[in-house]
Design a binder for these strands. Structure first.
Lengths: 188, 188
DNA sequence: ACCGTCATGTAATCGGTTACATGATTCT
DNA sequence: AGAATCATGTAACCGATTACATGACGGT
């Protein structure tokens, strides 16, 4: 069988790049190097607003990418044995290729609130809860845009602009649902 | 220890309801009964627009819900041994409870195109590809609203309206990116 | 020195995706 | 009736979530 040859454990060259991979590659590429914990903070401060990752992934994924030769792994000798990662030339090339493919993929909304609405949940309470959440998020984004927006590179700034647009859409949508559902029966 | 008693394999009462569970429960509840294949068609014709499921899930998930006692499973005696599912009273109760909790959960965009934008992809080609995709989706939704919209129950119609709103937002966003990126260098 | 909390990391589980497999149907 | 295509179903794999575990650190 073809898989039977003895590989002297060279970097396995063919990994699928998931969005998680891209985030890890992209952030390490921007910062030069990072430990998983630093990655966690970097995600929270950057793409985390529209694509967050559980911290456990930030230990598993770099390890996977290192096995594939896209990252270089350096283990600290001290007590914690922290691992520091850097992007290899192979990794840069892979990231570059991924960035160069303009995707026409459509992303589904996959919003649990919408699911509740679809299957007949009571619209008043649902819409009010959603409205609160989205108003808060919108305020947060607008504050972000006001404070750090001007200093952001074009990509991140556009992403933030997009987030604001969608939050405005959500606020408007749920507002209409609230209006059509009538006022909170707890009132008056 | 408390878990040590001998259960005579009764329906395991505590399943987490994932969105997948809810879609399966909800659709079977609306149609009365369904086989996995019918579920596949039902999803495509309903929630599939904003929350699709790979067909393999529509075999695995009903089985799981049946084990938990939320669905009743009936096996056809013929050659295919098709399985037909119905919602049990326990299942209806579980669905009802889920629908009654108004969630304030915020859903991330998680759009691969935005990810590319964020990490510095060439904006022109990306934005044009995205624009095409979203224009097509928007046209599809608007056509749906025109044709079947008036006959839809409130929940599904609102969900569709929401989808249209978000697609308009995407179209506007990527249009701006196209404009700011300048015209296609492939042009004269 | 102890306790609570946060930082950091690993392990186990589970849902979801991908790939494969077989039965039905249609067309020629 | 044979081939191609679609319907229907199962199995294996893998990424992601959850839960657990330990190390550091600040306060009292």
């Amino acid at each position: 069988m073809a898989t039977n040859q003895a590989d002297p454990a060279p970097p396995h060259p063919d990994v699928r790049l998931t969005p998680t991979s891209v985030i890890v590659l992209g952030l390490i590429s921007m910062t030069g190097q990072a430990t998983p914990y630093e990655l966690k903070q970097a995600v929270a401060a950057s793409v985390g607003n529209f694509w967050s990752l559980p911290h456990a992934q930030l230990y598993a994924e770099p390890a996977r990418l290192a096995r594939a030769g896209l990252l270089d792994e350096q283990v600290e000798s001290g007590g914690r044995r922290r691992k520091t990662y850097r992007v290899t030339p192979v990794g840069h090339a892979a990231l570059g290729r991924w960035l160069a493919e303009p995707t026409g993929t459509y992303t589904e909304l996959r919003d649990p609130g919408l699911l509740k609405l679809y299957f007949g949940a009571d619209r008043g309470p649902l819409a009010r809860a959603q409205l609160d959440a989205h108003r808060a998020k919108l305020a947060e984004y607008e504050e972000l845009m006001r404070s750090v927006g001007p200093t952001l590179p074009p990509g991140p700034r556009l992403a933030l602009r997009s987030g604001i647009g969608h939050e405005r859409e959500w606020v408007q949508f749920w507002s209409e649902v609230v209006r059509e559902a009538g006022p909170d029966p707890g009132d008056g």
